[in-house]
Design a binder for these strands. Structure first.
Lengths: 214, 214
DNA sequence: CCGTTTGACTTGACATTGTCAAGTAGTACT
DNA sequence: AGTACTACTTGACAATGTCAAGTCAAACGG
């Protein structure tokens, strides 16, 4: 019954991971307990240790999944991203924000070096490396193919900061709390994204950069 | 001996808070334990409960301190900030980044709604409110006095996102890890900040905005 | 076909944690 | 002198992370 066994294998690992993601989404990474995860996955309190070295191992695995998904999101933008730099920048920002909001459980963990230890967990580090490379690629291809590496790096970090800040502020609450009640959050977010994307286009134009497609 | 008593009072509260901040700076908020804090403050494991309702009460108090400090930093920028919008934007970004790096213990906690519960802790909420108002004020005064409230809000959120993203990426590690070894982190940060500030100025110019001083 | 190894767990144990409850020692006020 | 209050301390308890050891079926080598 080797197939059943390996199915079971994948099952429990996935069950544990999904339970953990759900807990992080609803009550935050802080409150994730190994035993509660096991309980919700319907296994003994020690079963997760078979798949993950310790608590931070679960976080690292979730983080890895997240970075891979983010890299794919960037790749999508890059592949279908034709048109002006403004459109591309907007698409990138939207993709980042969407990822953070739809995969909050992953997002909350990915940038917490204190709990998932990218430096110790090799696969997680590699996934995050790849996501960053995709971002650089996206910048080069959609903002300006003629950009030099130094400027590309600075552009990428600026865009990353912008997207990451907005996502963090939305996902972790403070932004929604600050808005006046009459303001619509979605509208406000799109305003911010449009402003950022437009600014990036102005800057790119000033530097004489042209997207790869044009 | 009432003076000595109240000094003692302030002493223990401060000691507990400082011990907590140091722990968060060095090993992250995750690993902060009530008992370790008490141990490092040299008091019994239950003494902190006299000053803080529970673990999240400590986080809330640190968060409150942080928001007040941040509001003051914004105020400084606004008060001494004359000159172009670009200079002002740059000063604001630098102030935010400096705060995050110098008060990492505070910064790490301030945007973690899961552990410090801004909504439940009234004073913390008020402090964060004030910091945001200072940010709006700063935007209005340094970017464009003639700006309408809606645009001011969008500008403020964009700047906040930008600064917050950069600060988070620096403080929590991923940015430093991504940089090629030959790149100087400080130089790279200034490049990103200059780029952002310049973009903001381009945008403000396009909108016909003028700082209050001019 | 039997013994051994291996994978996928489970049960048990232990130190540590957050926090409730109950004490205690000194000061302040009446 | 007695009461109330402040600023703690000591003790207790359930829950947690994790180490160690056990179980039990499948795979495998002879």
């Amino acid at each position: 019954m080797s197939r059943a066994t390996s199915e079971q294998h994948g099952d429990v690992r996935r069950l544990v991971l999904d339970a953990a993601i759900k807990i992080i989404e609803t009550t935050g990474a802080e409150s994730l307990s190994m035993r509660e995860v096991a309980r919700q996955a319907g296994v003994s309190h020690q079963a997760p240790y078979h798949y993950f070295k310790d608590r931070s191992g679960i976080f690292a695995a979730i983080s890895e999944e997240g970075f891979t998904a983010l890299a794919n999101a960037f790749k999508s933008v890059r592949q279908q991203g034709t048109g002006s730099g403004e459109v591309a920048a907007k698409a990138g920002l939207i993709a980042y924000l969407r990822f953070a909001r739809e995969s909050t459980g992953h997002f909350r963990v990915m940038f917490r070096s204190d709990i998932c230890g990218v430096s110790t967990h090799e696969a997680t580090g590699a996934a995050s490396e790849e996501a960053f490379n995709e971002l650089l690629e996206m910048v080069a291809q959609t903002i300006g193919a003629s950009i030099n590496p130094t400027d590309a790096m600075t552009f990428a970090l600026m865009l990353w900061s912008n997207a990451h800040g907005l996502a963090t502020l939305v996902v972790d609450g403070p932004l929604a709390r600050k808005l006046p009640p009459e303001a619509n959050l979605e509208t406000q977010l799109m305003d911010v994204i449009n402003l950022s994307a437009h600014m990036v286009a102005l800057q790119a134009a000033e530097m004489g950069l042209v997207p790869a497609g044009q």
